[in-house]
């Protein structure tokens, strides 16, 4: 039952946003100030919950359908698709991909969202799927709208889709956001800009793919997902000090 790697390449924390990014004001209150303690992964970290196909229903990856009450959800119909691979380019199957998003007007179906834009009675904005044996995944949804948020006086979130990934081990756990190519709000967004390296930011931008877009139906946006990859361990050294 055990074929998970015994070690992962270290997470490059400089590639990720720092915990403290003052332009994103809430991070000032919530960013730990002390250094993280580095931990050589044990089985507690090299394992992960095994999510099976019994968790996933047929419409779970179809947001055009799963929240429908009496009509079609409103907004630009789209496909979100891509592959889940690791840092060595190998497909990662059975990754639990969960996503959530605002509707086309920029409003979330959430008890705490009070933005004045309307709810869509036929749209929940939640979906999930498991990546296929070749790492591929696919959702149908509505392109989300931008919305204002309380940060600086007039901050707006660019259109985005939140995505949560559970891979083969806790070391691969990742939650991030998917943006859309060409969005003029991107360079203004402190959350997007919390990622220091422009090349890393660019990795979160989905690309329009006309070849995958079914004519007269939906636009397709390609978004490939890369999770941490294993570090080769050809032999076990005694740990330092042991």
């Amino acid at each position: 039952m055990e074929n998970a790697p015994r070690a992962y390449r270290p997470r490059d924390r400089a590639w990720h946003p720092p915990a403290l990014f003052p332009d994103y004001k809430t991070s000032v209150y919530r960013a730990p100030r002390l250094p993280l303690v580095s931990l050589g992964a044990t089985r507690s970290e090299l394992t992960a919950p095994l999510f099976g196909h019994d968790l996933i229903r047929a419409t779970d990856n179809d947001l055009l359908v799963n929240g429908r009450v009496d009509g079609e959800p409103i907004g630009p119909r789209m496909i979100l698709f891509g592959r889940v691979i690791d840092e060595e380019g190998r497909p990662v199957p059975n990754v639990l991909i969960e996503l959530w998003q605002a509707n086309a007007a920029g409003r979330y179906r959430h008890v705490n969202d009070s933005y004045l834009a309307p709810l869509d009675p036929n749209f929940w904005g939640v979906g999930r799927t498991l990546s296929e044996p070749d790492g591929s995944y696919r959702f149908r949804t509505i392109r989300p709208g931008p919305y204002p948020w309380r940060n600086r006086v007039n901050d707006w979130r660019p259109a985005h889709i939140h995505i949560s990934l559970w891979g083969a081990s806790l070391c691969q756990r990742l939650v991030t956001q998917i943006y859309f190519e060409g969005d003029p709000l991107l360079p203004l967004c402190p959350i997007y800009n919390s990622i220091p390296d422009p090349a890393a930011r660019e990795r979160l931008v989905a690309k329009l793919d006309m070849g995958e877009s079914p004519p007269h139906d939906l636009l397709a946006w390609r978004f490939d997902i890369v999770l941490r990859g294993p570090r080769q361990t050809f032999f076990e050294n005694r740990p330092e000090g042991a």
Binding site: D12, S164, L174, I191, Y192, R201, L204
Partner: peptide
């Protein structure tokens, strides 16, 4: 070698 996607807040 590829690099993992950068994280963003869950919001």
């Amino acid at each position: 070698m590829l690099r993992e996607l950068p994280s963003q807040t869950a919001g």
